[in-house]
Amino acid sequence: MNSVLLATAARLFKPLLLLVSVFVLLRGHDEPGGGFVGGLLGASAYALDAVTRNTGSARRKLPLAPHVLLGAGLLMAAASGLPALLQGEPFLTAQRYEAALPFALQITLSTVLLFDAGVYVVVMGAALLIMFTLGEEQI
């Protein structure tokens, strides 16, 4: 598609979409949002690229190939179940770790977040894989 308006807007929107997608992912911890929605938003950032230029350009800008993203996401999600085993609890039981940051800040890290991040990456990889496949076969 050769639209100057869309191409210009896409350049602005892409970082914004990626930022929002990460925000939605983190917010999903205890409010509406989460890995699935975040992943779709993240994929749409690169989809914009594919629509305005072509899928090849979007592929080049993606840091990892879509199927590698799929694998990495699955690995993260599956690995989030393993810490529970070390505690002798059933697979996938949520674990929390309190970490102290400088300036008396507290942060709670949990395996749930790792799982959600895995979902984010899987969804992004799968959505882009489908989009690229469909887009490239048309040519």
Partner: peptide
């Protein structure tokens, strides 16, 4: 379930 999952993951990472 986990063994085939991890196998698939390794295959994807070593594409």
């Amino acid at each position: 379930i986990l063994i085939p999952l991890f196998t698939a993951v390794f295959c994807l990472l070593g594409w």
